[in-house]
Design a protein around this nucleic acid. Structure first.
Length: 219
DNA sequence: CTCCCGATAT
DNA sequence: ATATCAGGAG
């Protein structure tokens, strides 16, 4: 993703405007320690953060430690997280991840990308979330469905694979913005640049967006 | 690429 | 009825 000087200025303007529009953007998942964030993020796949918070409120009291997840009967853990969807995969992954954390990482949620990626159900998106928000380690940019959609519509990437999108974003977004931009994009994605009916007429960056025209015509 | 999956919006 | 929601594994 090579971009000329003009493109570079367009990207800079977009980031500047969006950051100013969503100054309060930050993680919406509720957590009070790395383990809770890891579990919440795994549960957040294809599920609203609001529902995740609803489920984890009870979950975190019932499973306060890594041991609690590792020892939990699988069927019981499945029922405890069922409303988040994909509950069989998620329960199996969480329990197995807990076992690995106990046996290979001394009971501590790993602090490095390489180690986090060894946990089942954890890929770069989830690892980036945990690293940034639990440990303050910024290694990359978490690419979820919102970041992907916004990046594609704004013409920041042409890729479809999240890992490739992340590479593109890391190349054009200043490192100091890596931690906050995902939340800015997510906020923007929820309020304006929605998946179904994007509100382009209300969008602060529509003049800078290649996709704005196609959506504005439909009205 | 498909599958996993409940809940909500349109 | 269908699309979508802070994805990841086979």
């Amino acid at each position: 993703m090579k971009l000329d000087a003009k493109e570079k200025r367009r990207v800079e303007k977009i980031l500047e405007i969006l950051k100013k529009t969503y100054p309060e953007a930050r993680i919406a998942l509720r957590f009070s320690n790395p383990l809770e964030l890891l579990v919440a993020t795994v549960l957040s796949a294809q599920c609203t953060d609001e529902r995740v918070n609803q489920v984890t409120k009870k979950l975190f009291k019932k499973y306060p430690t890594v041991e609690a997840y590792a020892q939990a009967p699988l069927e019981e853990l499945e029922q405890d997280i069922r409303p988040t969807g994909f509950y069989r995969n998620k329960a199996k992954n969480i329990k197995e991840a807990a076992r690995i954390i106990l046996e290979e990482f001394g009971g501590q949620v790993p602090r490095t990308m390489k180690e986090l990626l060894r946990l089942p159900g954890v890929a770069r998106k989830t690892a980036n979330i945990v690293l940034t928000n639990a440990y303050g380690v910024v290694e990359g940019i978490p690419v979820d469905t919102h970041v992907r959609r916004i990046s594609q519509r704004l013409g920041l990437t042409r890729e479809k694979d999240p890992n490739k999108i992340e590479q593109d974003l890391m190349a054009i977004i200043p490192r100091k913005d890596w931690a906050t931009i995902p939340y800015v994009f997510i906020d923007h994605g929820r309020k304006i640049c929605r998946a179904r009916k994007p509100l382009c007429e209300q969008c602060p960056v529509r003049e800078l967006c290649p996709a704005a025209d196609q959506f504005l015509k439909k009205n």
